[in-house]
């Protein structure tokens, strides 16, 4: 009886400690974000940012566009087989465009971005920490939060929404290839149905809002995990995994919340 009680007590204490750790890490991450992302970039800051746009954005372009193409094609294929039963295959364009703009483009692009760019950001910053590059930068009198972290954060914030737009465009084109060119849906109805049903604010706007939120969260997680990791090779590999896991979960969870608010009438 006594031992059972102390067993539970130990569990509660462990849980509480874990809770404290989580809250503390969140606090550190928030201070980190505030210290690095806020502030006016210098002239040099712009060139650092452009360089990171290349690493984070341009190098993720291929994987995002190819995935967008396939997703658009699959959507058209699946959508057609369902719609054709109701004789509604004319609505294929609408279905493809709305699925992509509202859901698939922001979510899948963010997941790909986490895997391609986020993990690379974590590993790169982590390695800089492990080899004392961040410390030596501090000793030279340069704040690594401004010099190393800020350009990467801002590059991620900007790159993902742009990648999402690319994803949607290529996906819609992929749907066109399969639906119109292959399955023979009338081309005029593919486009006109799409034009008539897609609302700029409700669909494109909300999709972009999602994408901006995901960009903030994924980049923040990636960069913070790199900056905060234990500077060993094991620490780097764990942090890289954490980046992908946490940001994927965050994206999917937030997507549900945002969808509920935007389209669920909450």
């Amino acid at each position: 009886m006594q031992s059972k009680f102390s067993h539970y007590a130990a569990r509660v204490i462990g849980l509480g400690r874990k809770g404290c750790d989580v809250v503390e890490a969140l606090g550190r991450a928030t201070v980190f974000l505030a210290q690095s992302a806020v502030g006016v970039p210098s002239r040099e800051g712009w060139s650092l940012w452009l360089r990171q746009m290349h690493f984070v954005g341009v190098l993720s372009l291929a994987i995002v566009l190819v995935s967008g193409l396939f997703i658009g094609m699959v959507l058209a294929l699946q959508g057609y087989t369902i719609l054709v039963d109701f004789g509604a295959e004319q609505a294929l364009g609408q279905m493809v465009a709305l699925s992509l703009l509202r859901e698939l483009a922001p979510v899948v692009a963010a997941l790909l971005f986490a895997g391609r760019a986020g993990s690379a950001l974590t590993a790169e910053i982590g390695l800089m920490k492990a080899t004392e590059q961040l410390t030596s930068m501090e000793m030279i009198g340069v704040d690594p939060l401004r010099r190393v972290v800020a350009p990467r954060l801002w590059a991620g914030f900007v790159a993902l929404p742009i990648l999402t737009v690319g994803f949607s465009v290529v996906g819609i084109w992929g749907g066109y290839l399969v639906g119109v060119e292959w399955l023979g849906v009338f081309e005029g109805s593919y486009w006109s149905n799409m034009q008539a049903s897609v609302s700029f604010i409700d669909d494109i706007g909300n999709g972009m809002i999602k994408s901006v939120v995901f960009a903030l969260v994924v980049t923040w997680i990636a960069v913070f995990q790199g900056y905060d990791l234990v500077p060993t090779s094991e620490g780097i590999s764990r942090a890289t995994t954490r980046t992908v896991v946490y940001s994927s979960l965050a994206v999917l969870g937030l997507d549900f919340v945002l969808t509920a608010v935007m389209f669920g009438g909450l």
Binding site: E132, Q133, T135, S136
Partner: peptide, 10 residues
């Protein structure tokens, strides 16, 4: 400061 590991920017 000269670091023991050098710590050059890679």
């Amino acid at each position: 400061m000269l670091f023991q590991s050098g710590a050059l920017f890679s």
